[in-house]
């Protein structure tokens, strides 16, 4: 098992700080389902809105781990984006539980706290590997990374 630490990386040196926004409509493209979890509802909601607006994703925002598990009860999300440090079920616990049920779901932990890294390390000792993205992340970069499939 390996932890996937995601560090900002550019393919070559960009002309702009962030890649150009995709303006192409994605009518015929398959919209991937995203479950966004953050106890700061503003973040979860705006992220879901951004993802939905992009046309590539079908995003649902929830504000705690329990509700996230409810949401994922019947159907596996293609992608889980979750905050790490949350009251109740924290991001790592949520990620573990989703991973055990839906191994194919891409799991991204989003955190601006150093504590997240420690939690990640613990999880890695148990054999889990999740992506950890630093918060704040610019929506352009977020979309770019999500569209770029894991290599």
């Amino acid at each position: 098992m390996s932890i996937i630490l995601v560090l900002p990386q550019q393919q070559g040196f960009p002309k702009n700080e962030f890649p150009a926004r995709s303006t192409a409509p994605a009518e015929q493209r398959l919209r991937r389902t995203v479950l966004v979890v953050d106890d700061e509802s503003l973040i979860a909601d705006t992220l879901a809105e951004i993802l939905n607006d992009s046309g590539d994703f079908d995003a649902i925002a929830v504000h705690d781990g329990e509700r996230a598990l409810d949401q994922a009860q019947d159907r596996a999300p293609d992608i889980l984006i979750t905050d790490v440090v949350m009251p109740g079920i924290n991001g790592i616990e949520l990620a573990k539980s989703i991973r055990s049920r839906y191994p194919k779901t891409r799991i991204i932990l989003l955190s601006g706290q150093a504590q997240a890294r420690d939690l990640m390390r613990e999880a890695s000792h148990e054999g889990y590997a999740f992506e950890l993205w630093a918060k704040p992340i610019h929506p352009d970069l977020l979309l770019e990374r999500l569209k770029r499939n894991r290599t």
Partner: peptide
């Protein structure tokens, strides 16, 4: 510094997202 930075990260994320929208 780290404590302040951590505290700032969440509002920053939210504002960034809002400005984007």
């Amino acid at each position: 510094g780290a404590t302040i930075a951590h505290e700032l990260n969440n509002p920053l994320e939210a504002v960034t997202n809002l400005v984007y929208l």
